[in-house]
Amino acid sequence: MSNYVQKPSQAWTLFTYAQFAIAAVMMAGGIWFLEASFSAKGFYAMAALMLVSSTAGITKSIRDAEESDRIYNKLEDARTERLLAEVSSSDAA
């Protein structure tokens, strides 16, 4: 069984941070220069912040579920190997 966990490259991580920063600046600039009342701008700003927050939350939930499944599968594999070892040792006796 392999314990190798693939990690994203530093370039990809930098790209994602830069992409987020550029998108945030563009959204803020778009809201700032929007020809609307202050309350409408506030509404759009709150909606943008909630969208970013909920995206981070759902991403974390999906990742946590995947990691939980991975741990569960490792435990099941260990149990199966133990049972097979017990069966093979009782057959040898």
Rank of each mutant, 00 (worst) to 15 (best):
Y44R: 04
M46G: 12
A47Y: 03
A48F: 05
A48G: 01
A48W: 06
A48Q: 04
L49A: 15
L49C: 14
L49P: 02
L49R: 09
L49S: 14
M50Q: 12
M50K: 12
V52M: 10
V52P: 05
V52R: 10
V52I: 14
V52Y: 14
S53A: 15
S53P: 03
S53I: 13
S54H: 09
S54Y: 14
S54N: 12
S54V: 13
T55H: 06
T55M: 12
T55Y: 10
A56I: 13
A56F: 15
A56N: 15
A56D: 15
G57Y: 09
G57E: 05
T59G: 11
T59D: 09
T59E: 07
K60R: 14
K60A: 14
K60P: 01
K60Q: 14
S61R: 08
S61H: 05
S61K: 11
S61Y: 08
S61P: 00
I62Y: 06
I62T: 08
I62M: 07
I62Q: 07
I62K: 10
R63E: 15
D64M: 10
E66S: 04
E66I: 06
E67A: 07
E67V: 06
E67M: 07
E67P: 00
S68Q: 07
D69E: 07
D69T: 02
R70E: 13
R70Q: 09
R70D: 13
I71R: 14
I71L: 14
I71Y: 12
I71V: 15
Y72S: 11
Y72P: 00
Y72V: 07
Y72W: 03
N73L: 07
K74A: 03
K74E: 07
K74G: 03
K74R: 10
L75E: 09
L75D: 08
L75M: 11
L75I: 09
E76W: 01
E76G: 00
E76H: 03
D77E: 08
D77S: 02
D77A: 07
D77R: 02
